[in-house]
Design a protein around this nucleic acid. Structure first.
Length: 591
RNA sequence: GGGGUGGUAGCUCAGUUGGUUAGAGCGUCUGCCUGUCACGCAGAAGGUCGCGAGUUCGAGUCUCGUCCAUCCCGCCA
């Protein structure tokens, strides 16, 4: 037996007991005649004392070595108790020492504070060391508990977990896929599943009624702090359910996860915001509602303005929107410039602003405003001294998006100045609903599904499918937490005729393509498909939020870098000619 | 594909206007130390300044290119 106890177990009640512990050397304090070693395992730390004949051997230990010790539990002298350790009342007087593995000096400090500062590429190269840090071990545990809470919840609701294939067929709509060459079928490919969407709908046709899966998904798109090439989705689908049913089901799940993981009681139901209002007030479809700084609309006011830039936009069907960044009149030239650059990157021609200082409006555009316009702005935006007002004049959605982004930047600038606090544990969940079913894709010159082509229209809007598709709202919903899209889903189309019409007449996918790509699905719908709907959400993102981090890399054991590499295993790599030949593949490298 | 930030000792960083031998803290190593728990004290070692060109009498510092990490835009039905 390598150990009798773990390193967080012993107390003064164990006085005099002979015990064996194994673990990693967390730190060594060598006093010459006496050596203290903090021994660490996954449960905690116990101080081991070497002052016998073992002292000489112990001087050769190094941090992070794996050792086993045998010894007698002693109670520490009263003034030597370490109140910071659960085992701080005792220590083990070592009488036996086995060095299982002497460690090289780690390339970076394995403490929470020290490791957080280290460049992430180093942490990823030595991920097995990074994961020894208490914070990372805690993150792994949080992920486990969250995942378990999800499974327990759906199990209790009589859902069953069904596995679906990772190797799917290629469907070039939507996200770029990872292709997998078929050895048996030369020149043909599978695609790694972007999500189990189609299989879960088929499972509804199969009569499963209540399905869920913790599913790995793959998308060959550029990576971000909240996006990895492979990620984990909690995928749910149910028959005979409507939107209200989904909201209640999902709120129940989140309530349980927050309770089980954080012992926090989430208030439900979550507020709901229709898409149009989310855009109007926050300039984004995933608003962070922990702070105000809401957008205001002045399109009407400026229709007749002598300020041509605003007036022409307003009369041409665009929108003029403004945002009062309260208390940000002290922005530096550089900060204003940076905001302008952001606005420009979203297609704005500039970023008009009013700086309110010393009772005066300092702005290059204010000379064009009439007294009535100034009064209206003051009233609606609540302008007082020390404020900074930003404007956007553009087509409605773009104007909203520009100020939506400026709103987030302004919040960060306020946080930087200590004028705003954004607590990560201020859990502001909400549903965003009533998305447009279709959006017009300028580049392609046609309509594209906002969510995916299986989303059912809101029944009372279905009549507009032919006449004015962009007016049709989809039965789609997103669940948003503090500016992050946690997940989304919809009630699906279950009538084959409507689904076919959607593909062919609205999305304008040629009939033969529809048949080859979705034929099996349309056929399945003809055999008594029940009304159904579901939701999918990012487990990685949820765990990141539960852990108080914004990067999902912190809750994935072995994540990839922004260039898609695993720095620890050095993948991807070239493969042998033999492998390529077997797969009937020839590579053509870029110039 | 584009923009921002960063790359100097094992780690985190400083490095002035281009100018002698590139510094600090932590870590490492050696010695001392029987009550520490971020132990302490004394000493030492440790650098292709990401890489490659260029300008210059002289480049960590300026210019160009390139690689890597990260944040963002595009992209992510």
């Amino acid at each position: 037996m390598l150990r009798t106890h773990h390193c967080a177990q012993l107390t003064s009640a164990d006085l005099g007991t002979t015990v064996s512990l194994v673990g990693w050397v967390d730190s060594i304090r060598d006093h010459g005649g006496i050596i203290f070693v903090d021994l660490r395992d996954r449960k905690g730390i116990t101080q081991v004392k070497f002052d016998s004949s073992l002292r000489e051997q112990a001087t050769h230990l190094k941090d992070e070595s794996v050792i086993g010790i045998t010894g007698k539990v002693e109670v520490r002298p009263a003034d030597m108790v370490n109140r910071n350790l659960p085992t701080g009342e005792i220590e083990v007087d070592a009488t036996g020492l086995t060095v299982h593995n002497l460690s090289d000096t780690p390339p970076f400090p394995l403490t929470d504070a020290g490791g957080d500062k280290v460049n992430e590429d180093l942490r990823l190269t030595y991920r097995y060391l990074d994961l020894r840090r208490p914070k990372m071990r805690k993150n792994l545990a949080v992920r486990h508990r969250a995942t378990k809470a999800v499974r327990d919840y759906f199990d209790a609701q009589e859902f069953i977990e069904v596995e679906t294939p990772a190797l799917f067929k290629s469907t070039p709509e939507g996200a770029r896929e990872y292709l997998v060459p078929s050895r048996i079928h030369p020149g043909q490919f599978y695609a790694l599943s972007q999500s189990p969407q189609q299989f879960k709908q088929i499972l509804m046709v199969a009569g499963v009624e209540k399905y869920f899966q913790i599913a790995r998904c793959f998308r060959d798109e550029d990576l971000r702090a909240d996006r990895q090439m492979e990620f984990t989705q909690v995928d749910v689908e149910a028959s005979f359910i409507d939107r209200e049913g989904i909201y209640a089901l999902f709120e129940g799940m989140l309530k349980k996860v927050w309770k089980d993981v954080l012992d926090h009681d989430l208030p439900t139901p979550f507020p709901r915001l229709v898409f149009h209002e989310a855009m109007n007030r926050y300039g984004v479809d995933k608003p962070d509602v922990r702070f105000g700084l809401e957008l205001q609309d002045f399109t009407g006011l400026f229709k007749t303005s002598s300020f041509k830039v605003f007036a022409s936009t307003a009369t041409a069907g665009g929108a003029v929107k403004a945002l009062n960044a309260k208390g940000l009149a002290d922005l530096t030239q550089g900060e204003i410039k940076a905001l302008e650059e952001i606005a420009k990157s979203l297609g704005a021609r500039g970023l008009a602003f009013i700086k309110v200082e010393g009772g005066e409006w300092k702005s290059p555009i204010v000379k064009f405003f009439s007294e009535a316009e100034k009064a209206a702005l003051t009233a609606q935006l609540g302008i007082t001294d020390g404020d900074m007002v930003f404007f956007a004049a553009a087509p409605w959605e773009q104007a909203c998006a520009i100020l939506g982004r400026i709103r987030l930047e302004a919040a960060q600038l306020l946080v930087k100045r200590g004028k705003l606090t954004l607590r990560p544990d201020d859990w502001q969940f909400l549903w965003v609903v009533d998305f447009p079913l279709m959006s017009y894709d300028e580049a392609r010159g046609g309509y594209a599904a906002t969510h995916h082509p299986f989303t059912a229209p809101v029944p009372e809007d279905a009549a507009f499918l032919d006449s004015d598709p962009k007016k049709v709202r989809g039965q789609h919903y997103d669940v948003v937490l503090n500016g992050m899209e946690l997940g989304g889903g919809s009630i699906r189309i279950h009538q084959p005729a409507l689904q076919k019409k959607d593909f062919e007449e609205v999305l304008k996918i040629p009939a033969d393509v529809v048949e080859s790509r979705f034929g099996y699905m349309l056929k399945a719908l003809t055999y008594g498909a029940p009304p159904h709907g579901g939701i999918a959400f990012g487990l990685d993102r949820m765990c990141a939020l539960l852990c108080g981090t914004t990067s999902i890399r912190d809750v994935i054991a072995f994540p990839k870098t922004q260039k898609g590499q695993c720095l620890m295993t050095q993948s991807p790599t070239p493969v042998t000619e033999k492998q390529l030949k077997e797969l009937h593949i020839r590579t053509v490298l870029p110039e």
